[in-house]
Amino acid sequence: MIEILKQSWPWYVGGVLIGLMVPALLIAGNKSFGVSASLRDICAACIPAKIPFLDYDWRKEAWNLFFSLGIVIGGFIGGYLLGDPQPEKISSITIQTLEQNGVHFNAGFVPEDIFNWSYLFTLPGFIIIVVGGFLVGFGTRYAGGCTSGHGIMGLSTLQWPSLIAVGSFFVGGIISATWLLPFILNLGK
């Protein structure tokens, strides 16, 4: 039984379940599916400085924080307690290319070669982890949403500005994964 629960799900099951988050949140209380707004709420709650963009009653958006805390709990259940011991079946071309840049494939979602405390204090590690995270926070707020807010919610409600946003995410991601990341991984070598 536990073995079955640990298995990963095929994309067509997962895609449908992700899509169903849209009506679930609408019916639960008229909430737009999206995660990055919670970053803004945390900033608004923690930063006392007078920044107009953060000067609003974040308590009214508290549902966001509960939803986010839920995702952490869900990550613990789905990724740790019931984590799939089998590695993802990634394309061998991707694995080979990363291998050539010094990143060795392992099970468990993130590369151990990058996401470890000593690599964080190297130049490539700092760029990938800290600058990467910074761009995720800066870019999603600048773009008014992330993959869930624009990619799933915006496209599900047929809004063309979201399509432009998602197109921009992908242009940035393709440039980054194809050219920037290999360059950064080889810095200082």
């Binding site: 993130v110 761009l135 800066f138 870019g139 600048y142 921009s168 940035g172 991601g173 990341l181």
Partner: peptide, 19 residues
Amino acid sequence: YVIGGLLFGIGWAFSGACP
């Protein structure tokens, strides 16, 4: 949406994760 989107895309491919 375009400028922020491009920047987010770059960070997404680095860190491998959206929020």
